[in-house]
């Protein structure tokens, strides 16, 4: 097990390197350091000297990948790629192009993100499983077909409408909670109710439908027939036999989603004005702050890889047939 985890972590290094290389190349293919200087300085102040000094100050005056002037290993290290991207491996995110410290930003903005994402995630899964179990009990009836239709209809509604509808009904018409905003102190939960609710409701269609399929797939297995032949009741079969087996595919689906907890709230955060990582990202994209984008992509990838490893580990917990080595 331990060996397995170590191996997976080693395997993560080339992947993260690839991720960095990709974002780096992508960015510099269309946007040379000169262009960056122009957009950061503002068109008014563009002189060759100003560009040069900006590049020097921000460390963009070196070659991209390979420095022919430097000797030995410095040929690889004295480059923009090495200095800007590889430092991320030491979790040294450096400063944003506008001079803010990215590490501090991320650590303060992490909490509001989690405060929204964790409850919607947990409640969402719980609600979906409950709804799906309920539906499975009505399997192969007319009601079942209509419920599935409703699920598909719910899936077909854009996320944006859930947010807009939620804000309009709950916050504006019924005036139950504030429309948007966030305070770290006091009654901060008031600001959380609506985002969480919207997140959960928007996910029911796809989630419950998916779990229903998983349950039904298990219900067709031979061991369910064995359980029936034993004389077990349908409810007992559902909870004691189908649910534990369906947990295996459910887990894979869930654990991979965990990293998106940090990022997933992109829309919710910007609609509800929550100062989390999602809106941080969005602002960075809008102001073309490469340093922040780079750091966030890096963090996102690390979380994804951790998610994958966690999935494998949780597999062994849910499925006795698997042993990792």
């Amino acid at each position: 097990m331990l060996i397995y985890i170590i191996r997976r972590l080693f395997y993560a290094i080339p992947i993260l390197l690839g991720v960095n290389l990709l974002t780096f190349t992508l960015f510099f293919v269309v946007n040379s350091p000169d262009d960056m200087a122009v957009s950061q300085l503002g068109a008014k102040y563009v002189t060759p000297e100003a560009i040069h000094s900006w590049k020097e100050k921000n460390g963009y005056d070196r070659p991209l990948f390979y420095n022919p002037d430097a000797a030995g290993s410095d040929a690889l290290t004295e480059t923009i790629f090495f200095s800007k991207s590889l430092r991320l491996f030491a979790f040294d995110f450096g400063r944003s192009e506008s001079g803010r410290d990215i590490t501090t930003d991320i650590s303060t903005r992490m909490w509001p993100s989690l405060a929204v994402a964790v409850p919607s995630f947990v409640v969402g899964i719980w609600v979906n499983i409950c709804v799906a179990l309920l539906v499975v009990m009505f399997h192969a009836t007319r009601l079942d077909r209509w419920i599935v239709f409703v699920f598909v209809a719910m899936m077909s509604i854009s996320y944006l409408f859930y947010i807009i509808g939620g804000q309009y009904l709950v916050a504006k018409t019924w005036r139950l909670v504030p429309i948007s905003g966030f305070h770290a102190q006091g009654q901060f939960w008031k600001f959380l109710i609506l985002p969480v609710l919207v997140g959960v409701v928007a996910g029911i269609g796809a989630g419950a439908r998916w779990y229903r399929t998983l349950f039904l797939e298990e219900a067709n297995q031979d061991y369910v027939r064995t359980a029936r032949a034993k004389g077990a009741s349908e409810i007992r079969i559902l909870f004691r036999h189908i649910l534990p087996n369906a947990l295996i595919p459910i887990l894979t689906g869930i654990v991979v989603l965990i990293p998106s907890l940090f990022m997933g709230g992109l829309l919710i955060e910007s609609f509800f004005g929550i100062p989390g990582l999602g809106s941080y990202m969005l602002d960075a994209i809008k102001s073309q702050d490469f340093a922040i984008v780079r750091s966030m992509v890096f963090i996102g990838s690390i979380l994804y890889i951790i998610g994958l490893i966690l999935t494998d580990i949780s597999y062994t917990w849910a499925d006795p047939r698997l042993r990792l080595d």
Binding site: I15, L16, V19, L22, T23, L26, F27, P259, S260, M263, L266, M281, L282, I285, V293, M296, V297, G300, S301, Y304, I305
Partner: peptide
């Protein structure tokens, strides 16, 4: 797939 899709697209 380890790069968060929306970030890649946005960028």
């Amino acid at each position: 797939s380890s790069i968060p899709g929306i970030l890649l697209i946005a960028a």
